[in-house]
């Protein structure tokens, strides 16, 4: 057990150091990622502006979100995505399967999924340590859009939802990457997943805006936990019983995807043949 932990620690530390080499590029990239929100701020301002003119009695909310809520929502989804997005994970796994690199995990006493998870954790740690500055700056500049400080319970649920978003995002993408055992080329599949997740995770707009059949569909998908859910929790849109149930559903999703990943890995290895040197 001790050896195992030590092995994990080494993997984690190496990946962390590797990541911190490019911290300048990182920080700049993070700051730039907020730029699209600038257009969103203006777009929603224009929408709310028109709504106010159309009826003097306008409630001035869309699906329960005020203008400030919208901006805060977009800023918070950035944070959610910082936890849940796994750039290059699925395509990396697929590539390793295709070019036979996974053979090294068959001989070495290292588990591919565990190894990748540790790597991601290190990447994320490095990312947060550098991204903290840009995030703090933007949130500080936009503080007027945020509601008053939520209570400790909400903070706790928010933190939990972010951590779960990370794990969920990891296992979701890993299982998509593992499909490469069956179809060698998964890039188009990945593209479709990326599109769907952009739309249905709530990255593009608060999912509460969706009309009937869609709102039910997104409720049955795990994607909403990647961006929508943490933001909605912070803004107090999901509370009480609903919050507890949602968190449990998310845990169930995480466990299910973990099991799925493991099964796919074992099944995939059983049918895998490595050719060439």
């Amino acid at each position: 057990m001790h050896a195992r932990v030590q092995q994990w620690w080494v993997v984690y530390r190496i990946a962390l150091e590797e990541r911190l080499v490019y911290r300048g590029d990182f920080a700049l990239g993070t700051l730039m990622r907020f730029l699209p929100i600038v257009t969103q701020i203006f777009l929603w301002w224009a929408v709310f502006d028109a709504m106010r003119h159309e009826s003097a009695d306008a409630s001035e909310t869309i699906a329960g979100y005020s203008y400030a809520n919208f901006i805060a929502y977009y800023l918070l989804t950035m944070l959610g995505r910082a936890f849940s997005s796994m750039p290059g994970l699925a395509s990396g796994i697929a590539q390793q399967i295709r070019n036979g690199e996974i053979k090294k995990f068959l001989i070495q006493p290292v588990d591919l999924i565990g190894f990748l998870l540790l790597n991601r954790m290190a990447h994320k740690t490095a990312y947060y340590s550098v991204a903290l500055g840009p995030f703090a700056l933007v949130y500080f500049l936009c503080q007027s859009y945020f509601p008053p400080m939520p209570d400790a319970g909400t903070w706790g649920a928010f933190g939990l939802s972010l951590i779960l978003a990370f794990v969920l995002g990891f296992f979701l993408e890993a299982s998509i990457g593992l499909i490469a055992f069956w179809f060698l080329e998964v890039s188009s599949l990945l593209f479709v997943y990326m599109l769907l997740s952009f739309f249905l995770s709530g990255h593009m707009f608060p999912l509460d805006m969706l009309p009937y059949p869609w709102s039910t569909i997104v409720d049955f998908l795990p994607l909403k936990y990647l961006a929508y859910f943490p933001s909605a929790v912070f803004l107090g849109k999901v509370t009480g019983r609903e919050l507890v149930i949602s968190l449990w559903v998310e845990v169930i999703w995480v466990v299910a995807l973990m099991v799925l990943c493991r099964v796919m890995w074992n099944r995939g290895l059983a049918r895998y043949s490595g050719y060439g040197g």
Binding site: A46, V47, E54, I62, A63, F191, F199, M209, L210
Partner: peptide, 27 residues
Amino acid sequence: ASTSWVFMNLGFYLLIFRYTNEIGAGS
């Protein structure tokens, strides 16, 4: 894939126009 991206964008704006008749008052 490239058209589905476009359809998604369209869906987003259809959603917006459920709530307003115009983007920017008098624009």
